[in-house]
Design a protein around this nucleic acid. Structure first.
Length: 493
RNA sequence: GCGGAAAUAGCUCAGCUGGUAGAGCAUCAGUUUCCCAAACUGAAGGCCGCGGGUUCGAAUCCCGUUUUCCGCUCCA
């Protein structure tokens, strides 16, 4: 990370806090690690990002509908999805090499070596002891076994181990009054499963025909071992996901289509295309047969913002098996190869999943600029958030040029009419230039100034954030003018 | 989780070798009436992250702890 970009990242974080976009959670109690709150402007910006996504995905596609599923779900769902087993591993660190290992794998390696050396009885004894310990989740016993069998770190060669710890990335809590094992529920680690378990409900009640999609925006929780880099990796975060159900065999064309469509969504905001890249997964997750990340060039390098995954029929098949409910779809369309309907099958799934908090940070990074406005006579600069007008928290600010001669009253009257349509701010404190700069700092795209001429002919000036240029317009036309400039049409077309 | 660095007003920071806290900006009230910040007057704002120790005395030295940043590690 170069000094400049490092500086930029720090400045954006400081700006986000100072101007009410993002605060550390529970700050008066020293904060809570890797948890953040959105402030008065952050909440607006985040809502606008959600609206943009929802409109683009749900409203603009006849065959995609949106749902809002609960965070708590039946515990069996996480067994079916593979999260219960796959998300928790007994880990142990070597204090000298600082390397971390899965305790069970270290023991497995040792067993293999015993077998190779012909010490089969030792191998069997260790295997039995390890299975027993794993079954009982007896972590101290696992460490004992590692010590007893003199297992050394392959890197440092020492046996200086930490305790064995369980890293379960799912948060859990109890449901009901009695704390019993059977009542453990998890906070969902992804929103996708809420869509899969409602697939039948939506398909039937919405009379959806394949191909169709189900979209959802919601919170997810992961007990990350290390969560860092501001809101890039948080323990509580928000996802915007869409699962698209297709006929098996057609998944690759849909995968390609969504890969392109999703990048377009990002670029429509006016971001430099060079800031984005695709990153194809070489090593695929157990459920996927193709996966790509859309990455953004953050100050600390390219980072995943969105993933497009071809999840095959893994999830629906798993739920069919675990729930005993048939997840199949009857496809009446005629297969040209057989002249018969395609018939019953479990649909394949293409998933698009974007991290809303990362998208938020990306948007801030992109918009933030410290602009040098110096002339020969005078040094000058401003900090401006060049947010797309659709995303800006405050659409326009209204100022009386001065605080007397009836200008404040006139400005208030204009504001009262416009606030029916837009989120506005009124300010009369300080010099007009200072008020412009304050609005620049929170990304307000337009400032409307009421001056003495307004009292005569009912015209005002609109000052544009990016160009700092002003134009004089009729006050009665403001709703139309601003409405056109902040319309979602500009992004969705 | 390991190693390194940091934490003082809303923000950016100063405060030397221990003597109970300061600036600029921001904020608020007033003055000024100006179309692109930093004009004038006044006010408010701090258990110097938290806990303990050394000391007559700690923002300052020592230990612990929390949080943040950087590197390693992890990230289905």
């Amino acid at each position: 990370m170069s000094k400049n970009t490092d500086e930029l990242f720090k400045n954006v974080i400081a700006h986000a806090k100072e101007y009410g976009f993002v605060f550390p959670s529970s700050e008066i109690y020293d904060g809570l690690s890797a948890v953040y709150d959105y402030g008065q402007y952050g909440a607006e910006l985040k809502n606008n990002l959600k609206t943009y996504w929802w409109k683009a995905m749900v409203q603009m596609n006849e065959n995609i509908v949106g749902i809002d599923s609960a965070i708590f779900m039946h515990p069996k769902i996480w067994k079916a999805s593979g999260h219960v087993d796959g998300f928790s591993d007994p880990m142990i660190d070597n204090k000298d090499s600082k390397k971390r290992y899965r305790a069970d794998q270290l023991l497995e390696d040792k067993i293999a070596r015993y077998d190779k050396d012909g010490k089969t009885d030792k191998a069997e004894a260790l295997q039995t002891a390890m299975d027993e310990a794993l079954k009982n989740e007896d972590l101290p016993r696992l460490k004992e076994l590692i010590i007893e069998h003199e297992i050394a770190c392959p890197v440092s060669g020492t046996r200086n181990w930490t305790d064995v710890r369980q890293f379960n990335l799912m948060f859990s809590t109890q449901m009901g009054a009695v704390a019993d094992d059977a009542d453990v529920v998890y906070l969902r680690p992804e929103t996708a499963q809420g869509i899969f378990v409602n697939y039948l409900n939506v398909q039937k009640s919405g009379r959806m025909k394949i191909p169709f999609g189900i979209a959802q925006i919601g919170k997810a929780f992961r007990n990350e071992v290390i969560a860092r880099q501001f809101i890039i990796r948080m323990r509580e975060f928000e996802q915007m996901e869409m699962q698209f159900f297709v006929r098996p065999g057609t998944e690759m064309e849909w995968y390609k289509k969504w890969k392109e469509t999703r990048l377009q969504w990002h670029l429509a905001l006016g971001t430099d295309a060079a800031k984005y890249r695709y990153h194809d997964h070489v090593k695929l997750a157990h459920y996927a047969n193709a996966a790509v990340d859309i990455e953004f060039d953050f100050p600390f390098g390219f980072k995943e913002v969105e993933g497009i995954h071809s999840r095959t029929d893994f999830d629906l098949s798993q739920h069919q098996q675990f729930s005993g409910k048939k997840m199949q779809y009857f496809d009446p369309e005629i297969d040209p190869a057989t002249d018969k309907p395609y018939g019953n099958y479990i649909p394949y799934v293409i998933e698009t999943s974007i991290g809303l908090d990362r998208m938020f940070l990306l948007t801030m990074m992109n918009a933030y600029e410290e602009e040098d406005l110096s002339t020969d006579e005078k040094q000058d600069s401003r900090t401006v958030l060049r947010l797309h007008p659709c995303l800006a928290p405050v659409k326009a600010a209204i100022f009386p040029l001065i605080k007397k001669d009836g200008l404040p009253e006139k400005a208030r009257a204009i504001m009262d009419k416009l606030k029916l349509d837009f989120n506005l701010q009124y300010e009369e404190k300080d010099a007009i230039g200072k008020r412009y700069r304050r609005q620049d700092a929170i990304g307000t795209p337009f400032c409307i100034t009421v001056d003495h001429q307004t009292l005569e002919d009912n015209t005002v000036t609109i000052r544009h954030r990016d160009s700092m240029q002003q134009e004089r317009v009729a006050a009665d036309d403001l709703d139309k003018i601003i409405g056109a400039l902040v319309s979602w049409k500009n992004l969705l077309r």
